[in-house]
């Protein structure tokens, strides 16, 4: 292994880190908002629930890579779209990549949220009702925090998988860490060293995120009232 070469490649790849992070942060926040909307839709009516289910089915049943291609190359096939107001946005590879990642993330996150919401005990809801809370207050102060705590481990996994998924943005010309690595390989013809460097960058990133999630989990657990854990006398 050529250490001098690695020392030369590493900073080159690190230059893609801000793009990787911005892709991840934007698509995760967009995905979270969409997932909340989907959950709302699911609760609203039968038709809304059917739509939400169909959405999740489509986005979880197909590979993310094909979703990216469909949005980037597929949509551009239509002249009507190219002449529409949306084109200045969809023209940008960055916007297309974020859109695809966001739509995909929403499908997975809404399922995680659904699991979390199901785990909120009816007792907690009843207690809130008895205490005279309004529906929005109850949602804000009881249901969502409990569901969030419940869903946190699964959501943590989703966050890391999204960070890793940003590597697919390289297929639509974006020069994030993987894109830079691919370009470097085709310049230097030394695949293994370059891809190993990129792998280390992601590994560190994911490890940091995993630690953060664990820390958050531990912190949120201490806020639980000890009375809840006590077995009934």
């Amino acid at each position: 292994m050529d250490l001098a070469f690695i020392a030369e490649v590493f900073p080159k790849l690190l230059a893609g880190l801000p793009l990787t992070l911005s892709l991840a942060v934007l698509s995760l926040s967009g995905g979270a908002i969409l997932a909340l909307l989907l959950s709302g839709l699911r609760a609203s009516s039968w038709l809304g629930a059917q739509f939400a289910n169909f959405y999740v089915y489509i986005f979880r049943g197909t590979p993310l890579l094909i979703q990216i291609f469909l949005i980037y190359y597929g949509l551009a096939q239509f002249p009507a779209l190219r002449h529409s107001l949306l084109w200045p946005l969809l023209r940008e590879p960055y916007v297309c990549a974020v859109l695809a990642l966001m739509l995909n993330d929403a499908a997975y996150t809404s399922e995680i949220l659904r699991g979390g919401l199901r785990a909120v005990s009816s007792g907690a809801i009843e207690a809130a009702k008895v205490a005279g809370m309004s529906r929005p207050t109850m949602l804000r102060r009881i249901v969502l925090p409990l569901a969030f705590r419940q869903a946190l481990p699964a959501y943590g996994a989703e966050v890391t998988s999204m960070v890793k998924a940003t590597s697919l943005a390289s297929v639509v010309t974006l020069m994030e860490v993987t894109g830079l690595a691919r370009a470097e390989v085709s310049q230097s013809y030394r695949a293994i060293e370059v891809f190993l460097c990129a792998a280390v960058i992601y590994l560190v990133l994911v490890t940091v995120i995993t630690r953060l999630v664990h820390w958050l989990e531990a912190r949120l657990s201490t806020h639980r009232s000890p009375a809840l854990d006590r077995s009934p006398a």
């Binding site: 190359y73 551009a76 096939q77 190219r82 084109w87 023209r91 590879p93 297929v171 010309t173 691919r182 370009a183």
Partner: peptide
């Protein structure tokens, strides 16, 4: 300069005006 991993993709993006 925008680089693509395959040649035909450059022409698709030329056609779409990207």
């Amino acid at each position: 300069i925008r680089t693509y991993s395959s040649g035909p993709d450059t022409f698709l993006d030329l056609k779409s005006g990207r």
